[in-house]
Design a protein around this nucleic acid. Structure first.
Lengths: 339, 339
DNA sequence: TGTCATACCTGAACCGGTTCAGTAGTCCTA
DNA sequence: TAGGACTACTGAACCGGTTCAGGTATGACA
C-alpha cells in the first residue's frame, strides 16, 4: 500500500494541503464540517504523519535521548537502571515522545561525543542524564550545545535552579540507615561508598558521618566501584586479619557490593547479623534472596524515572527549569541487621 | 550559534548545494580539491547533517525500534534483556543506527499498536522482536506494514527462510542439561517451563522429553510464568506432601523460577543438591550468588543481541533474509547439582 | 449602500537535505 | 575537425509536513 500523504488527502477532498494540516492538528482556520471530513478520511486511509517531515518542519525531533555508560557485560547486573528506564519510558510515551537509547563504555568522552552528535544532527530534543559528577562538565556542554536536559541526581541548591533535575535528601536517607544501626546497638560502623567522583557519594559519606556523630558513633569509610568484588575486598580489609577496629556493621553503596560483603563474611567465618550487620543503599531482588536477606534502602527507581522524564517534558514544552525532590527512601529491614 | 546548513556551506564556498552534498557523502561528481574544501569547512564549522532532513529525503529514519513488553515493575528483574539490549546497541552504533526503545505492558495489542504507529509514521526502518509465539501474528503484521524485522528466537525451519531471525538448537541445550543430570544419577526429573505460548518453551519441553527418553529417564512437566512464585509453587506441587513420584531433580525455565525453587526446597526441609538438584535454563548473577549456587545454562545475551542486530542491519541495507543459529549454550556446573 | 470584521480557505515559501537532468568545458579519437 | 566520452558542476524538483500572507464570501453595523 502506498503511503498516504497530506497532499493525497487534500487532492481526494478537493481542498488545499494547508486546510488538511489545520484540520488534523486541531488548529483554527477550518470549518467543523471540513475538519470532520479530513479526520474521517485520514482514519479510513490509516494516515499517519511522517515523523521526519514533521520533525523537519517543526524543528522538533519528538525524541529524547539517554546515554547509559557502563561496561556492556555488566549492564545487566544493575536492576536500578532498568527500573529507571521503565519509569522514564512510560512517562515519555504519555507525552508522545520517543526514547533514543545509547550505550557507551565507561569512557566519559564517549558520552560527551554522543551529546555533540545528537545536538548537531538535531536528533533529540532533550537529554536525560544521571549521577552528577564532581566538576561535572556535562551541564555546561549541554548548555553550549543548546540541548535541554534533566539531571537525575542533581546537587541540592538553595536559590534559583541552574538546571532541571531531581534531588535526593541524602541527610534523611543517611539518618534512616544510621538510626537503624544505632538502635540495634552498633557503635562502630563502616561505610563502603561508590566512587568519590559521584557527587552523591560524597554527600552520602558526609551525611553518614554527621548522623553517626550525632549518636556518638564512629565511622570508617572505604571507596568501592559498585562491583561485587569491591564490596568483598572492602569487607576483607575492614574485618580481616589486618583489621584493628571493632566494626560491627557495614553500609554498602549498592546491592552488588552488599552481595560481595556477604561472601566476604562467609569466607572470614563471620556470622551475619550476629557478628557483623549489613545494610545496602539500594534494594533489589538480590537483597531479598540473599541469605541472610539484606536490609536495604528502597529507592523506587520506576517512580524516579517517571519524575525525571516528566521534568524533561515540561522543560521541553514550557521551558520551565525546575528541581524536584525525591521522597525519602524507606528502609526495608531484613535479616542482615537482625530484624 | 546558528546551525550551519548545506546551503550555508554552499554559499560560503560559492558553489551549489548539490556539489556540497556530493562532496560530503563521498559521491562522485566533484573534484578532489572541491571535496577537500567542503570537508574542511564542514569540520571547521562543526556542521552535522540534520537527521530529520536526511530522513525525509532518503526515506530512511536511521533508527530501529524495539518493544519490550513486560510489567514495568518487574522489568528490572530480567537481566537477560538488559544484556541483549547492550549487545544490540553496540552493534547498531557500529552500523550508525539509533535504537528507539518502547516499553509496553503485557497486553500484546500494545506491542502491535506500536508497530503500526512506527510504520505509519516511518519512525523506524526496522524492528527487533523476541520470542516467537504460537501462531505468532507479528510476522504477518510487520510484513503487511512493510517493516523489516528480525525475530530473535525464531523457529528452526528447513527450506528457505520466511524471515530473518536467530535460532537456538534446543535439542542440544536440552541434551546438555539432561546428560548432566543423568550422569549424576537422576532418573526421574521435573521440568518447569515458561508459558506454553512461547514456541521455544514448547520445543524445550519436547526436547527434554526426548533426551530423557533416550536415557530411559522419566520427566514430569509444569508450566510457569518466569516469576519467582511460579518456581516456588511448582516445586511445592512436585515435591510437597501431595507428591507421589520420586523426582530428584528439577529444571527451571529461568533464573527467577530457580530462585523460587530454592526457597521452596528450604521450606519443605529438602536439601539441595542432596535431596533435590536444580538446574536453571538461564544463567545470571542470581544463580551464582544463591546458596547453593545454581547450575545453569549460560546463554550469553550480549553476543546474542549483537548477532540479532547485525542480522537486522544486513537486512536493511542489503535486503538479505537470513537465519543464524546461536552457538550451543554452555552448562555452568555449580553446587545445586552437586558439582 | 458602503465599510469592516470575521470565518474559511488557498498558494507558496519553508525546513535541510538528496538526486535528477542538463550544461559547459576538456580531452581523446577517427 | 567533427563526434563522442568524460569530468565538474548547477538549477530545480523532491521528500511530507507547517505556516504565513493574502483572497473571497458572509454577515453585522452605521
Amino acid at each position: 500500500m502506498a503511503k498516504e500523504t497530506i497532499a493525497g488527502l487534500a487532492k481526494r477532498l478537493g481542498i488545499s494541503k494547508a486546510s488538511v494540516s489545520y484540520a488534523l492538528n486541531g488548529q483554527p482556520g477550518v470549518s467543523e464540517v471540513t475538519r470532520r471530513r479530513v479526520l474521517d478520511l485520514a482514519e479510513e486511509l490509516e494516515w499517519y504523519p511522517s515523523s521526519s517531515a514533521r520533525a523537519l518542519s517543526r524543528s522538533r525531533s519528538g525524541a529524547v535521548g539517554m546515554v547509559l555508560s557502563a561496561d556492556p557485560d555488566l549492564i545487566g547486573t544493575e536492576p536500578y537502571y532498568m527500573g529507571l528506564l521503565a519509569g522514564i519510558e512510560t512517562a515519555l510515551a504519555e507525552g508522545d515522545m520517543a526514547l533514543m537509547l545509547r550505550m557507551v563504555g565507561t569512557d566519559p568522552a564517549q558520552e560527551r561525543a554522543t551529546y555533540e552528535r545528537w545536538a548537531g544532527e538535531r536528533k533529540v530534543d532533550g537529554v536525560l542524564m544521571f549521577d552528577h559528577l564532581h566538576e561535572d562538565p556535562r551541564p555546561a556542554l549541554l548548555d553550549r550545545l543548546g540541548l535541554p536536559f534533566v539531571l537525575h541526581g542533581a546537587p541540592e541548591r538553595h536559590g534559583p535552579a541552574l538546571f532541571s533535575g531531581t534531588t535526593t535528601d541524602h541527610a534523611v536517607d543517611s539518618a534512616t540507615i544510621v538510626d537503624h544501626l544505632h538502635l540495634r546497638g552498633h557503635r562502630r560502623i563502616a561505610h563502603v561508598s561508590g566512587p568519590h567522583r559521584f557527587l552523591h557519594e560524597e554527600q552520602r559519606i558526609a551525611c553518614v558521618r554527621r548522623s553517626a556523630a550525632a549518636h556518638g558513633m564512629a565511622v570508617v569509610t572505604r571507596e568501592g566501584n559498585y562491583a561485587l568484588a569491591a564490596g568483598h575486598d572492602a569487607v576483607v580489609s575492614l574485618l580481616g586479619d589486618t583489621a584493628e577496629d571493632g566494626v560491627t556493621a557495614v553500609i554498602l553503596g549498592n546491592d552488588l557490593m552488599s552481595m560481595g560483603a556477604l561472601l566476604a563474611l562467609r569466607e572470614l567465618g563471620l556470622r551475619c547479623p550476629e557478628d557483623v550487620a549489613i545494610v545496602s543503599w539500594d534494594d533489589s531482588l538480590h537483597c531479598q534472596l540473599a541469605s541472610p536477606s539484606v536490609t536495604a534502602l528502597s529507592r523506587n527507581p520506576v517512580m524516579q524515572g517517571r519524575v525525571a522524564a516528566e521534568l524533561l517534558l515540561s522543560l521541553l514544552d514550557a521551558g520551565t527549569l525546575q528541581t524536584r525532590a525525591m521522597p525519602a527512601s524507606d528502609l526495608v529491614a531484613r535479616s542482615s541487621t537482625g530484624s
